[in-house]
Write a protein that binds this DNA or RNA. Structure first.
Lengths: 162, 162
DNA sequence: GCGGAATAGTCAAGCCTTCAACTACGCTCT
DNA sequence: AGAGCGTAGTTGAAGGCTTGACTATTCCGC
């Protein structure tokens, strides 16, 4: 990984990255970090909604009845249950989401998007989509867009096989 | 961005993503989030060093004298100055880094990697490289690796023009 | 030299995330 | 029915990150 930490040529040892691989890895890592950071900042500063909260609102908005079980929502948002529970509590304080006990399963809770929440999402979506276009799609050729989709789906099959 | 938030067909309005673009964006976003999460967890659990701290140690190890100005280190690690200052304080407590006043600029501080820090990095590097290989390079064809490098460098030129 | 602006870094408050309990409910076997 | 176990979700404490204010030092034009 580093040039100072010496490679181990012994068979069975660590499979170090060569110079080309390091370049690819760093370009990929740094660019994705910077992109996420930029998108999150623009969204947060212009709308007061972090990307994490935005993802929760989007997930709810796409569902029939605009409601979803807490666990399902956590999975959808790549979030732990605890994290989601805290986040929903904050969104509840803003009046954008409310909790509702689940009829079929007494253990369960449903997170429900309110009309105020939907309106907030609607406003934020304009800002966010414009950011994604400016910093991602406007920068890439159609071939590059196809490539990130291909690589993304390949990695998802490995990292998150459903 | 969402199918529920209705597209705006008016000229000059928000340039919404079509279905294909959404697919590409989500695959890219979720895969990069999951990959970072996985790598960070494996590194943290197996070595006690988070990826953020690892990057700091790597940056220092690659420099002549294994030392770097705080600001330069912050830039290199995509970190704010405040965050880096906190992180270096923690690394100091572990005995892996020490601070040293900068000779040329009385305002400045140098972060210096200690021998203990180098040893810790050396151990962590094996774990981390193996993770990167398992979850990234082993999953991708040479063409896909070339693609992530190409896209990464393209985005870096836009997001971080030096 | 000296006053003002810029730069380097630290610090404190507040929010977010994680981890490890903990409560409550449902399912199954007897 | 009820014991035992697994699942759903919440909570609180601990620690990390961000923001903005603050100190100290250097640079620059007069």
């Amino acid at each position: 990984m580093t040039s100072s930490v010496s490679p181990d040529p012994s068979p069975g040892g660590t499979r170090w990255l060569d110079a080309e691989e390091q370049r690819a890895w760093r370009a990929y890592l740094f660019s994705s970090l910077l992109l996420q950071d930029r998108l999150d900042r623009e969204l947060t500063h212009q709308t007061g909604i972090s990307h994490a909260y935005y993802e929760i609102l989007v997930a709810l908005s796409e569902t029939p009845g605009r409601m979803m079980r807490m666990s399902e929502l956590a999975d959808r948002c790549l979030s732990s249950r605890s994290r989601l529970s805290h986040a929903v509590s904050r969104l509840e304080e803003r009046g954008w989401v409310r909790r509702q006990v689940c009829a079929e399963d007494g253990r369960g809770q449903l997170a429900v998007l309110t009309d105020e929440g939907f309106a907030a999402l609607d406003a934020a979506a304009h800002v966010h989509v414009e950011s994604v276009r400016t910093h991602l799609f406007d920068q890439l050729s159609p071939e590059q867009v196809a490539a990130i989709r291909d690589v993304g789906e390949t990695l998802l099959r490995h990292l998150d096989p459903r």
